[in-house]
Structures are given as structure tokens and as C-alpha cells.
């Protein structure tokens, strides 16, 4: 697990270098067109999760992402993402006689690399977050507890809809060390542990609120 983190971190450092160190994608000046150099964008959209920290199969909610993208002349690009996710269970699950439902929220920092549009490969660290659910039947959701963080990897797409508007589906797979443990009525046995792997699919509508294009080389 630690090794994966190092790899992700390494890619974070490498991406800008890729832009600089890549051999020039030279073309005849007359054929060159303006191309994206960097962009800040924000996006938001619905999300669906299979598995998770609670014994419910499906959770639904949404994500919101702040993203910085840069591209080099060689066509390689990279991006940094900061994503906030909120999900809540769809239907209650029954755990040893107790009904479980709830919600959880957390933030993710990540990085994506892409050779060509629209595909990108992303990795990140989902931070520990808050979870909310009733401890007793009918009680308000007031209990928050620490969930372990998780590493995730996934693939996204940037489908251009307009000049600054894109659709960004992203599918990620999270893996974590410390599962959630739930016990009912203080009984030590049986105990429920969350499966340390879950998948999240979200579709965000992304807006480039700032962008810079590379200047088009002019023939002299």
C-alpha cells in the first residue's frame, strides 16, 4: 500500500517535468494551432457507490471537484484534483437485528495524467471523513466517527461539450487498510467489518473558469 502511495506521489512530481522535458512536438508553423496550456476548472455532479463503510450495498450522493490541468507540447498532460464527496445509503441494511443507514462525507486529493484527450488515469488519497447514522432505532443522525483513509485509482474522461464546458465521468476503486467495525448491542460476536474495497462512479459537469492557451507560433 505504501509503495502505491509513493508511485502516486512520484507521478505528481513527474507530470510538470513531462511537460518541460518532452521533446518538442514540432510541426510546420503554418500547421500549428492554439492549444491548451493550463486550466483551472470546477465541476459537480451525481455519484453512485458500490460498497463502502456501512453494510449497505448502494449509496448515492454527489461530488464536487476543483481541478488544475496542464499540458506540454508533446501531448502529455497532468492535473491536480481536490474532490469533496457526500454519499448516503439508499436503503437500510439489517445487521443482526439492527437497521443501519447513514451518510458519509470526505475529501480526496488526487492527480490525473493523460496522454491524449479525453482519457485520463487518476490516483489519489481519500481522506478520513465523517460518517453519520443513528445508533438507536429512530434516533437522529448525530454520530460522527473517523473512517480510515483510502488510496484510490481510476479512469476519467473529459468530453468537451462547449469551449469551456466538459462532462467528466470518473470511475474509481478505493482500497483501505482499516475497515469499519460495527457491533450490535455491545456483543463482541458477531461483528461486522466493511469490505476494504469499494467503487465509486460519478459524472461531473466541469467548467473551465480560467484557462491559458499556448500562443500559436507565427511565421516570420
Amino acid at each position: 500500500m505504501l509503495r502505491v502511495g509513493v508511485l502516486v506521489g512520484a507521478s505528481l512530481l513527474v507530470v510538470p517535468g513531462l511537460a518541460r522535458a518532452a521533446p518538442g512536438v514540432s510541426a510546420s508553423p503554418g500547421e500549428r494551432r492554439s492549444r491548451l496550456d493550463a486550466a483551472w476548472s470546477i465541476g459537480a455532479g451525481p455519484a453512485l457507490q458500490l460498497g463502502g463503510y456501512l453494510p449497505n450495498v448502494l449509496s448515492v450522493g454527489g461530488t464536487a471537484t476543483l481541478m488544475l490541468r496542464t499540458f506540454g507540447d508533446d501531448g502529455w498532460g497532468g492535473g491536480l484534483t481536490l474532490t469533496f464527496t457526500y454519499l448516503r445509503t439508499v436503503t437500510p441494511a439489517t445487521l443482526y437485528g439492527a437497521e443501519v443507514e447513514g451518510a458519509y462525507a470526505n475529501g480526496t486529493v488526487g492527480v490525473c495524467i493523460r496522454r491524449i484527450e479525453p482519457f485520463g488515469f487518476c490516483g489519489g488519497w481519500r481522506m478520513p471523513g465523517g460518517a453519520y447514522f443513528p445508533r438507536t432505532p429512530g434516533a437522529t443522525w448525530e454520530h460522527g466517527w473517523r473512517t480510515s483513509g483510502s488510496l484510490n485509482a481510476g479512469v476519467d474522461m473529459l468530453i468537451t461539450l462547449a469551449d469551456r464546458l466538459s462532462l467528466r465521468p470518473i470511475l474509481t476503486l478505493d482500497v483501505y487498510d482499516w475497515p469499519t467495525r460495527l457491533i450490535v448491542n455491545k456483543r463482541r460476536d458477531p461483528e461486522w467489518r466493511s469490505f476494504p474495497l469499494f467503487a465509486t462512479l460519478s459524472v461531473e459537469l466541469t467548467l473551465d473558469f480560467w484557462k491559458r492557451d499556448k500562443p500559436t507560433p507565427q511565421s516570420k
Partner: peptide, 22 residues
């Protein structure tokens, strides 16, 4: 939690109850 810490240790199980007033 958002800051990376937490209130309960990750190894401490969460207790839920089947009755309203345990």
C-alpha cells in the same frame, strides 16, 4: 476527520443498538 485525524480510534468498533433507549 477532514483534517486527517479522528475522534475514535479506527480499531474501536462502533456500537449500534436494536432498542430505542439502551
Amino acid at each position: 476527520a477532514l483534517a486527517g485525524s479522528g475522534c475514535e480510534g479506527p480499531h474501536e468498533p462502533v456500537v449500534i443498538y436494536t432498542c430505542k433507549d439502551p
